[in-house]
Simulated assay, not measured.
Amino acid sequence: MTQAPLRIAVVGAGIIGLSVARSLSLLNAQVSIFERTHLGAGTSSKTFAWINSNGKNPDSYHALNCAGMREHVALQESEQAEARWLDVCGTYEWAADLLQQERLGARALGLQARDYPAARISRTALQGRIPELRIHPRSGDIWHFPSEAVLCPSLLLARLWSEARQHGATLHEGVDVLDIDERPDGVTLQLSEGKPWSGAHVVLATGRWTPALTASLGVTLAMIDANQPNKRACGFLGLTAALYVRLRANLITPEMNFRPDGGGRLLLQTPDLDDRADPAYQASTDGLIGQEMLARLRRTFHNTAHARLDNLSVGQRSRPADGLPAVGFITPRQRAYVVATHSGMTLGPMLGRLVAQELVEEKRDALLKDYPPDRLLNKSVSDFAPIATLHYPAAQ
């Protein structure tokens, strides 16, 4: 007799949630997605979306991110629609401060030793590729990381949801999960729309909101509070109007990070200013942060004297207390499963496949060996050492 498909709920419709939902539906699970606002409304809509494993440690985390990069390429190559959401455009990075130059060089050589593509490039060659670029004369070696990419989150979300829907997944927007009742044989969600949902498993792909939901199971999960000012969890993102700058690649420069965002627009990041980012305060494009971003932009590129910011926002990142992923069951009954991670853009599609494999086929991939949530359960952020800058060169 044919076994009935597993009924699985996915809470959260960002990159992680939709990646999980897509992969579950491809394995014939009966998937219901619950999203409190709308598709992609959380961190997935405010992100630099840099796909990389540049300086990510320890080795197992580097391997996880490299696998995520390969998964993105394979997924893009399987795309049948015309739109491309992934651009393997590479990253160029350089530093002006001597200490930062030494750290960059050591990181790049370390990546080479891990067979991660990295090579020096001359100023002349780079300015030939980006003619409008200005490079400060005190800048040191320029490093090129050609396998890195940027993506358009909205187009990736469209791909993930389209495929999940085609394989039977349903999306419930504007529905909040009020409570989770876990039993030995399944789980029930109490929903804001009134009618409960019951099934075999629930996957919490709720990013920075995860601790609020694990609390309903009597479990705390140590994550940095992204609702409070904290440069590890919050960061400014500036979006320019269209510029006369021919930039395709991702740039990590001494003053600011730049990536193309379509139609001549650039997305800007200023990691050294992120200690001023407050999610409770809507930064003004005409304020001090906005004006500083524009000043740095004009120092970096020709043709930007009249540049303006169309938007300045504060992105709120999902970050477990030790900076590393938490992927797995969070209770002994193994009905509630959590996926909480930084680098969600890089890891999303790959984690979706591995999570679905574990839930449906009961096989846990070796890439997840070091990342069960146990180390974070019933602890607080103060129980962990501060996240090392080494994990995250620049801001990702």
Rank of each mutant, 00 (worst) to 15 (best):
L267P: 00
E193D: 15
D59L: 15
A395H: 13
A113G: 11
S382V: 06
A96P: 00
A95N: 10
A280C: 07
I130N: 01
L288M: 03
I130C: 02
S53V: 00
S78Q: 15
T210A: 14
R70W: 00
S139P: 07
Q316I: 02
L294H: 11
Q357F: 01
A9D: 02
G40N: 05
G207Y: 03
Q3D: 13
A388G: 14
A96I: 11
L267I: 03
G323M: 07
G287N: 10
L217Q: 01
L18S: 03
L27K: 11
K231A: 11
G199C: 07
G262Y: 05
L171M: 14
L155E: 13
P386T: 09
R308H: 08
G55C: 06
L27H: 05
A158T: 10
A241T: 12
G14P: 04
R375G: 09
I15T: 12
P254W: 09
M345W: 02
E358Q: 13
A158D: 11
S154V: 13
A295V: 08
T304P: 08
T188L: 12
D185C: 09
P5Q: 03
N54A: 04
H306I: 01
L221W: 03
D272S: 09
A307P: 09
A63H: 07
F34Y: 15
T210F: 04
D176C: 04
A215M: 02
E362W: 02
A305K: 13
G328E: 09
E102Q: 14
L359D: 08
K46F: 09
A233K: 07
L239P: 04
S313Q: 11
A164N: 12
W85L: 06
F34M: 05
E362I: 00
Q30R: 12
T304A: 09
I289Y: 12
P131T: 10
A125C: 06
L26Q: 15
A388I: 05
N28I: 00
V10R: 10
T341M: 12
Q101N: 08
S19K: 00
P146F: 11
G140Q: 12
L367I: 03
R319C: 13
D179Q: 14
F301E: 03
L109T: 05
W94R: 08
D141Y: 00
G235W: 01
A63P: 00
D365W: 02
G207T: 04
G55I: 04
D59N: 06
A233Y: 06
G199I: 07
S60R: 14
P58W: 06
N52L: 10
L27E: 11
G140A: 10
Q80L: 03
G264T: 05
A29H: 06
Q80I: 02
R375M: 05
A4Q: 15
Y371M: 06
T37H: 14
